[in-house]
Nucleic acid binder design. Sequence first.
DNA 1: GTCTATACTTCGATAGAC
DNA 2: GTCTATCGAAGTATAGAC
Lengths: 219, 219
Amino acid sequence: MMREATRTAGGGSRPDRPPGSAGEPEGSEETTADRLLVLAAELFRQKGYGLTTTRELASRLGIQKASLYHHMRGKEDLLFAISMESLRRITEAVTAARDSADADRRLHAMIMAHMETALRDQDMHTTMLIELRALSEERQKEVRAQRDAYQDLLRSVISDDQSAGRLRGDIGAEYLTLSLLNLLNWTIFWFTAGGERTIDELAAMMSTIFLDGARVRQP
Amino acid sequence: MMREATRTAGGGSRPDRPPGSAGEPEGSEETTADRLLVLAAELFRQKGYGLTTTRELASRLGIQKASLYHHMRGKEDLLFAISMESLRRITEAVTAARDSADADRRLHAMIMAHMETALRDQDMHTTMLIELRALSEERQKEVRAQRDAYQDLLRSVISDDQSAGRLRGDIGAEYLTLSLLNLLNWTIFWFTAGGERTIDELAAMMSTIFLDGARVRQP
DNA sequence: GTCTATACTTCGATAGAC
DNA sequence: GTCTATCGAAGTATAGAC
């Protein structure tokens, strides 16, 4: 899960999980490296990358500062690992949605998948989206490339839908895609799990507004 | 402009500008306090509040670190002043738009005003929106109250439009407002002045998508 | 894998002269 | 209003024992 950010993971000190298994095996212990990644995402979202200290990461994990460096190379590695993992997950989920729906339900399914993933991984996803600037230039490039690849996924479908006459053609696919991402992404700032609406309800609303608009149809 | 953040502004050491004058008087010198506020907004957006140093603020202004403290009480004051000023401006602009348009063009006019203000003050506005968490709790409360007041401005109009049958009623005014703000606000992350679209073109697109949706109308 | 101890850097902010 | 000089706190990261 955080291959790039640890010295040990994948290095053979623990038996590997079956490749392709999505979730944690039932009841298995969680590694400190994994807990660190999850905690870092939480703090990065809550306080910002720059104001999150390794001291707090350590104390919240119940270990000493120095012990952290057994599980990561440095603070920036955490941010990078979070960003890449978050993009990997949403790309995977939305690709699956694209491939399993009819043409006229495809975009709706992708919107649902996007929202479900982004809000379920809210800490990681938010961190990826707004703390990009804190990464080194090379790593920013790498994250940006992944992000662009993800957005192309949406754009190509939107573009197809335009060609097929399902979506309006007077606004370019580029800007239709940006608008859709606007609509979906900002939700990370105000969504709270357990609030008055479920993720699926919100996702359905967004899909409706994007596709049909807020205005009442003139007869 | 930054009354709350300086020791001197408004304190009588310089003649006050005529009250109510919006812009700078023609050719007048800009105070160091004003330059500091603008620069801080630029850096806060670019690097984040936590990673922006007073050292860089000073060096970019061409003065010594210590001299900064003649113009501000502390780094956090800058963030607070930026946030409040940004909200003051957008509230003013959108209120004016609300009051000067017919009922059936009102929301469109407010969308245009929102985008024009938010993107023209992109540094300040972005900082206000995403660095809120770095403020002290009391100041966060104050900013949040202003932000809520601004959002109520939009919501009350949206609610009216629903009652009048101009906007769909199957999604509550609360969520229609949140969706609209989603759509508009995320633009701050990708808009660049001088790009291929003007602010007004983008604003018009957003207005169209929000009101009419992306889907082609079925005959 | 965790510890104690600490090196080294950078931070925001202040003192006090001019 | 700006300067030189500096303080004390906090930051990331490392050394080396267990």
